[in-house]
Every structure is written in C-alpha cells, then in structure tokens.
C-alpha cells in the first residue's frame, strides 16, 4: 500500500523497506570508505597503522559468512539477525567516534561531519532493520547477537600515536563491517524480494 499523505496506520511493504535499507547501507559504506581514506591520508602516512589493526575488530567474535556459499547457505532469519547484531554492536562506538573525533588536533571539518553523519545514518539503518526483522519474525526482534565494544579509553589516550592508531583501527573495522552489512543486505533483498533473481 502506498502511504498517502496523512494516513495514520500506513505500513511500508517489505519491498519498500528493503529498498530503503539497501540504499542506506550502500550510503553508510560509501561514507565509511570516505572517512577511512581521508583519515588515512591525513594521519596514516608512514605510520603503518594497518599492521596494528589486523585482526583486532571488536566484532570479530561474531561468526560472519566469508564467501558466497556460506552467505547463501545461512537461513535468511539468521542472516537478518546477524546484520542486526552487527549494527547494534556499532551503535555505541559510532556515538563515541562522532564525539571523540572532535578532539583530534586539526581534524579536518570533513572528517568531523562524516563521523556525525555516519552515526545518524547507521542509527536509521538499525531502525529500518528492526522493522524488517519484526515484520519477518512476526513481531519478534531477538537481541542475542551483540559484541560489546570497550575501545573508548583507547580513543582518549594521552599518547597521540596510540590514540590515532585506535581511531584508525575503529575506522578500518567499521569500513570492513559496513561492507559486509551492505553485501548481506543486497543478498537478502535479492533472495526475499526477487526470488534470487535480481
């Protein structure tokens, strides 16, 4: 049903919900690429942050599909809940990223604005996903999948190099996870809306 202006109990179709979340996840990942690349250009030159960032994401405890076959074999409800769990696991760190990045010396305005925009968009993506999961699981939105982030102290370290390395690591991990989320949602949309025939 198309929502006419002012209608009260208007409900978007699952197709429209998926269209919106996929647009959002695509944008969130695009923003994460921009902020990651810009931060790396500005602060990463010659510091080899990547060596310290390898295998240190707070969400690495979540078992996620690493290839097409795994992604296709997982039941759609499990994949939806996994995406929901990943988004929830990023809610807290993105809030702190947006506030702590303001304290980085001479941080370009573009990085500050993107951090705030990513936090807002990710929150809306989470809300959209909760609607979808609620719709598909007939009202039930499980929240067992979650990975606690304890990285705030490292974003506030006195030593600048360590602090910048912590920011790099957070951006590197979000860049990776937001790409996974975008990829899984495109897969789910094709499966659930287009019968795997996009």
């Amino acid at each position: 049903p198309i929502c006419s202006n002012g209608s009260v109990n208007c409900q978007l179709s699952l197709r429209e919900l998926f269209d919106r979340v996929v647009k959002l996840s695509h944008l969130v990942h695009f923003l994460s690429s921009e902020i990651f690349n810009e931060f790396n250009e500005h602060y990463g030159q010659g510091r080899h942050f990547i060596a310290r960032a390898v295998n240190s994401c707070h969400t690495s405890t979540l078992t996620t599909p690493e290839d097409k076959e795994q992604a296709q074999q997982i039941h759609h409800e499990d994949l939806l809940n996994l995406v929901l769990g990943m988004l929830r696991s990023w809610n807290d760190p993105l809030i702190h990223l947006a506030s702590e990045v303001q304290r980085i010396k001479e941080a370009p305005d573009t990085i500050l604005r993107k951090a705030v925009e990513i936090e807002e968009k990710n929150k809306r993506l989470l809300e959209g996903m909760e609607k979808i999961v609620g719709r598909i699981n007939s009202g039930e939105v499980g929240n067992e999948i979650y990975s606690q982030w304890e990285g705030l102290p490292s974003l506030q370290l006195a030593d600048e190099d360590s602090r910048l390395s912590a920011f790099y690591n957070l951006l590197h991990c979000f860049h990776r996870d937001s790409h996974k989320i975008d990829n899984y949602l495109k897969l789910l949309k094709c499966r659930l809306i287009h019968g795997s025939n996009c």
Binding site: A71, K186, L187, L188, C190, S196, C198
Partner: peptide, 9 residues
Amino acid sequence: ADVRSGWLT
C-alpha cells in the same frame, strides 16, 4: 558474475 543472487552488484 553472479549478479542474480545479489552477492556481486
């Protein structure tokens, strides 16, 4: 390229 499944866009 398997674009049908949505794995690759």
